[in-house]
Computed example of a mutant assay.
Amino acid sequence: MSSPLSFPVSCHSTCCFMDCQLYQFHYIKEAKKWTEAQQYCREKHTDLATVTNMKDMKRLINISARDQSEAWIGLYNKTLGTRTWYWSLPGVEFSVNETNWNQGESNDCGKQENCGLLVNTSKWGYASCSIQRYFLCYNGENSHFTWQEAQSYCREKHTDLISGTKQLQDGEVEKVIKSTHRKPFFGLFRDTWRWSDGSSFSFRHWNLQFNNYQPNRDKVILIKENKTWEDALYYCRGHHRDLVTITNMDDQRWIQEKVKNASTPFVWIGLHYAWSLHFWVWVSDEEVIYENWASCPQMDDCDVSGAMETRGGHKWLEKKDSETFNFICSKN
């Protein structure tokens, strides 16, 4: 939630103008950490700025235009929080009583597949937000973007991604779906981000350039020797740093490129099942937040660890510690 970085601050005060804008924004040209900025805004105004729609976004840009620097707003990532479903279009509230999940989609085993797609004209599914798919705009439709790129395109060219059950029941949507075999993105997403003032606004407007961060591929190395999981662990710690830890989708992408050159169908990664605690842990002590399991892992075996497929979808599977595979080390 907190950050060691210091930026100027965007606070808001609650009020209502002639056009019934919910907030009055104040740009504070003092460099502070996020938690310091939050405290300042709560003491001097109401809270850090909450952004409810593109109109708010433009107002924020206008008040800070002369400074041209980054500034804190009230959005923070509650890392250990529950992922909450939202509709992309501001003002459309998500209701658990108005869902229409395809069979088997209600439990995703903790996988980071956080963006909605239409399996057919009536059923919903979800997939990784970073893959490219066709998508459905409200007042328009286009092809092949990631979910966030699709959202940005729809807001610029039309209104937004199709959002809410009312829009999905439109006859035009059914015509589009029937005209293609592809499963398009629509305006459903989930995340663990929250607003400082406790409001439930679903508006997000990410800078896509910052979302394209890629880790240094030279920090991992494939060892083409067949070892048990424990022997692989000791090898990595003795010759490099550790068995590899995968904390996000970008890590996963780089590592799956490495494992394509393996000589075994699976490679060991630094994921181990802690039998006494009944959950999976990384050997680096990182919490298992990002997951890429092929299926829900078993929780009744004390001698299993995590391995990645070297072909296909590069999914994770639990394997007996005594099996021998190539493995991936992280480097100092």
Score class of each variant (00 low, 15 high):
residue 310 T to L: 03
residue 1 M to A: 14
residue 204 R to S: 02
residue 267 V to W: 02
residue 253 R to H: 14
residue 165 T to R: 11
residue 107 N to I: 12
residue 17 F to M: 13
residue 147 W to A: 00
residue 163 S to D: 02
residue 256 Q to M: 11
residue 165 T to A: 00
residue 105 E to W: 01
residue 183 K to Q: 08
residue 187 G to P: 00
residue 329 C to N: 01
residue 143 S to F: 07
residue 79 T to G: 12
residue 267 V to K: 01
residue 174 E to T: 14
residue 191 D to E: 02
residue 194 R to A: 09
residue 275 W to M: 08
residue 106 S to W: 05
residue 153 Y to F: 03
residue 202 S to G: 03
residue 92 V to H: 06
residue 220 V to E: 01
residue 237 R to T: 11
residue 293 W to C: 02
residue 263 S to F: 07
residue 328 I to P: 02
residue 141 E to H: 15
residue 144 H to A: 13
residue 52 T to G: 13
residue 152 S to Y: 13
residue 170 D to H: 06
residue 279 F to E: 06
residue 79 T to L: 07
residue 159 T to S: 07
residue 250 D to M: 05
residue 37 A to Y: 03
residue 33 K to L: 13
residue 315 K to C: 07
residue 98 E to A: 08
residue 317 L to H: 15
residue 154 C to W: 01
residue 79 T to C: 15
residue 189 F to A: 03
residue 274 A to C: 08
residue 85 W to C: 00
residue 10 S to F: 08
residue 126 Y to L: 06
residue 88 S to N: 13
residue 264 T to R: 03
residue 101 W to N: 04
residue 118 L to Y: 01
residue 288 V to A: 12
residue 64 S to G: 02
residue 229 W to T: 01
residue 72 W to Y: 05
residue 208 L to P: 04
residue 204 R to Y: 14
residue 45 H to N: 10
residue 120 N to Y: 15
residue 236 C to A: 02
residue 50 T to Y: 07
residue 33 K to R: 11
residue 35 T to M: 15
residue 293 W to F: 09
residue 19 D to M: 05
residue 122 S to V: 10
residue 116 G to C: 13
residue 261 N to W: 05
residue 196 S to R: 00
residue 152 S to N: 05
residue 41 C to W: 05
residue 300 D to Y: 13
residue 25 F to I: 05
residue 299 M to N: 15
residue 320 K to D: 10
residue 102 N to G: 15
residue 84 T to L: 12
residue 78 K to G: 14
residue 156 E to Q: 15
residue 239 H to A: 10
residue 269 I to V: 05
residue 182 R to D: 09
residue 206 W to V: 05
residue 176 V to R: 02
residue 306 G to I: 04
residue 211 N to K: 12
residue 42 R to P: 11
residue 195 W to S: 05
residue 315 K to W: 12
residue 167 Q to C: 07
residue 45 H to I: 02
residue 180 T to G: 06
residue 293 W to S: 04
residue 283 V to L: 15
residue 66 R to Y: 09
residue 217 R to V: 11
residue 6 S to P: 14
